[in-house]
Write a protein that binds this DNA or RNA. Structure first.
Length: 398
RNA sequence: GCGUCGGUGGCGGAGUGGUCAAUCGCACUUGACUGUAAAUCAAGCGACUUAUGUCUACGCAGGUUCAAAUCCUGCCCGGCGCACCA
């Protein structure tokens, strides 16, 4: 049995860092101090093959709990994923197929394992209990809640008002997530603030099943690279599986004002250090420098430290010193082939028209001579071409 | 099922017989300025081409017309209302 740590300073950080709201906080604190091992539940639906940094917030929380000796219970929502949660959506979420879910699921353990300790973690797929339920059970569960509750949720109410469709299946989601809590006998459930309704549903379900209701810890939601909410559908995510160079670069390209928030939420750089950085920023330090630290910290959480270091060097060379990146993609072309055709054929550009636009915009550049290429030239010898902000390619002649 | 309104590009949302590859906003791409930040400015944003033209597109399938996103018919999908008094 793991030893439970009850250090009050650590508990305080656990209860506050990246945490928006705890229900019920006093109760949870008491439990944490009691020295009893708690069962901490976190579920993620495999709605996308990639887990992004937004999810790392509750995952890091889960790890924090683990570090204090508590039992992490990770649930992959393969059943809930099919039904689809509407919590963070302004429109209906399409139902996923079994096949999609399975494909998405493939690397989940690996990704989650980058943060939490899988050996000390209970790993479940909620289909294992949810698919056993029939209409009778679902009916009973559904009876615990009212439509009134459901439609008064902000995003649902809004959709109704706008005359958008709200399907009956969406009502089922909170029931399913709530039943998960019953199935794993959760003491605490983690989730984003947008999950409040579903998380609370778990408490009601547990009461119905004569379990003590779980406490709820709602973590902050992180903004994506562009300042909007991070979401796979916006394309503003940083993913656990992003390559080091890419990950580093993505952090560097985000808004300055997000930097402190990122430090607090998605890293575990000590809070003292973070407030130092904040002070530096206020004093007028170039935000780029602090952002470099952040980019490095984040990258090394998901990749070996030396890869993160390399990514940093590569970034400096490429963008500060305007050199050619180390990991240039290499392709082959026949002598006399048109540059545009080659790029399109290799999937680097979607169409010849796009190539034409970039030519017109002056985006295409011969890196050896440093000159802008103004027309669709024929390839005669090996060349390194830049054809966009981040797009480099080395073309060798067959 | 009946009635009614509607289905337009990644999204929102114009357009209701020709001048529509389709106003506009957002998102996105590229360039300038920079710190691959923000803000700003400029250009672009179906494809093939590089001519200043062809093809494919406005839920789907037909039809009317010299000409349709726009009119007609059928189908599919969605919203709302009705489905009552026994």
């Amino acid at each position: 049995m793991a030893k439970i740590i009850t250090d009050s300073k650590k508990i305080e950080e656990l209860l506050t860092r990246g945490v928006e709201e705890v229900i019920e906080k006093a109760n949870l604190k008491k439990k944490l101090l009691s020295g009893k091992q708690l069962r901490i539940k976190l579920g993620i639906d495999p709605t996308s093959p990639n887990i992004h940094l937004g999810r790392s917030i509750p995952l890091l929380k889960l790890r924090d709990f683990q570090n204090l000796g508590h039992k992490a219970i990770f649930i992959v929502g393969d059943a809930t994923g099919i039904v689809g949660d509407t919590s963070d959506k302004t429109s209906e979420r399409p139902m996923l197929t079994d096949k999609e879910i399975k494909a998405n699921l493939k690397n989940y353990k690996k990704q989650v394992g980058k943060i939490i300790d899988l050996k000390k973690c209970e790993f479940h797929q909620n289909s294992s209990w949810l698919k056993k339920l029939g209409y009778k059970e679902v009916g009973e569960h559904a009876n615990i809640f009212s439509i009134n509750q459901f439609i008064s949720r902000e995003n649902i109410a809004k959709r109704l008002k706008e005359g958008k469709r709200v399907s009956l299946r969406e009502v089922l989601y909170p029931l399913m997530q709530g039943y998960d809590s019953v199935a794993v006998k959760a003491d605490v459930e983690l989730g984003g603030t947008d999950q409040k309704f579903n998380l609370l549903a778990g408490r009601d379900m547990q009461k119905e099943f004569k379990q003590e209701p779980q406490d709820i810890m709602m973590t902050n939601i992180i903004n994506g690279l562009d300042g909007r909410k991070m979401s796979s559908s916006w394309g503003n995510t940083i993913n656990f599986l992003d390559e080091p160079n890419n990950m580093f670069g993505k952090v560097m390209s985000m808004s300055d004002d997000l930097v402190p928030e990122y430090f607090k939420l998605v890293t575990r750089v000590s809070l003292d250090k973070v407030s130092e950085y904040e002070k530096d920023l206020k004093k007028g330090e170039n935000p780029k420098e602090i952002k470099m630290i952040l980019a490095f910290e984040i990258t090394k959480m998901y990749h070996p430290e030396k890869d993160a270091q390399k990514a940093r060097e590569n970034w400096e060379n490429t963008f500060s010193k305007k050199e050619i990146p180390e990991d240039v993609k290499e392709i082959k072309a026949g002598k006399g082939e048109k540059l545009g055709d080659v790029l399109v054929k290799n999937g680097l550009l979607p169409s010849n028209s796009e190539f034409g636009r970039r030519i017109k915009g002056g985006a295409v550049k011969d890196m050896k001579s440093g000159e802008v290429i103004k027309e669709n030239i024929e390839i005669k010898r090996e060349m390194i071409v830049k054809f966009g902000k981040k797009d480099f390619v080395k073309i060798s002649v067959k």
